[in-house]
Amino acid sequence: MLNRVILIGRLTRDPELRYTPAGVAVTQFTLAVDRPFTSQGGEREADFIPIVTWRQLAETCANYLRKGRLAAVEGRMQVRNYENNEGKRVYVTEVIADNVRFLESAQNRDGGQSSNGNLPEEPSYGGGNSGGSGRGNNNFSRSSNNQDPFSGDGKPIDISDDDLPF
């Protein structure tokens, strides 16, 4: 069985960071994702999908994401239910994210360019193990070198047969 979701959209509001009684960070936000077709009136429609992140990923999202920012979310779909104050059963469908990529920097969103003209300064983060299964995958990666490894002065690249994966 497979439960995997990949979404690209814009945040409808700033993420809400909270902590569980055990001190675990959890962030919730909504992603507006365009549908691939237009309505009969010629207007573009969107789906508004609730996203939940946990632990380090939650804190990172709360620090870097803002309303209107473009983000890619990878995770799994979850449906849960509870009984509200009126005794009615309420069903909630949400995406539990384990990887979030920030697809534009604050400078690009505001109309300016970053000082070096390269990729956004904010990194993309993964991890944020949800569900407390104990795997502890709270690692994130940050590229420390934004230079293109293939930008040379036209010289051939020396690759031995041992370097090839096949």
Rank of each mutant, 00 (worst) to 15 (best):
L2N: 15
N3H: 08
R4P: 00
L11A: 10
L17C: 05
Y19I: 00
P21K: 14
G23D: 13
Q28M: 08
T30R: 06
L31I: 01
V33I: 01
T38Q: 11
S39R: 11
G41M: 08
E45W: 05
A46T: 06
D47C: 00
F48C: 04
F48I: 02
I49M: 02
I49C: 02
V52T: 14
T53V: 05
Q56K: 14
Q56I: 05
A62F: 04
R66D: 00
R69Q: 15
V73W: 07
E74S: 13
M77T: 12
E83H: 06
N85I: 03
R89I: 15
E94L: 04
I96N: 10
A97T: 01
V100I: 12
F102M: 10
A106F: 07
N108M: 12
D110G: 11
G112E: 14
Q113A: 13
Q113S: 14
S114Q: 09
L119G: 01
E122R: 06
P123V: 01
G126W: 07
G127P: 06
G127F: 03
N129Y: 13
G131S: 05
G131A: 03
G132R: 14
G132F: 07
S133D: 15
G136M: 13
N137D: 14
N137Y: 13
N139L: 04
S141R: 09
S143R: 12
N145I: 07
N146E: 07
Q147G: 05
Q147R: 11
S151D: 08
G152T: 14
G154S: 08
K155S: 12
K155M: 06
I159K: 11
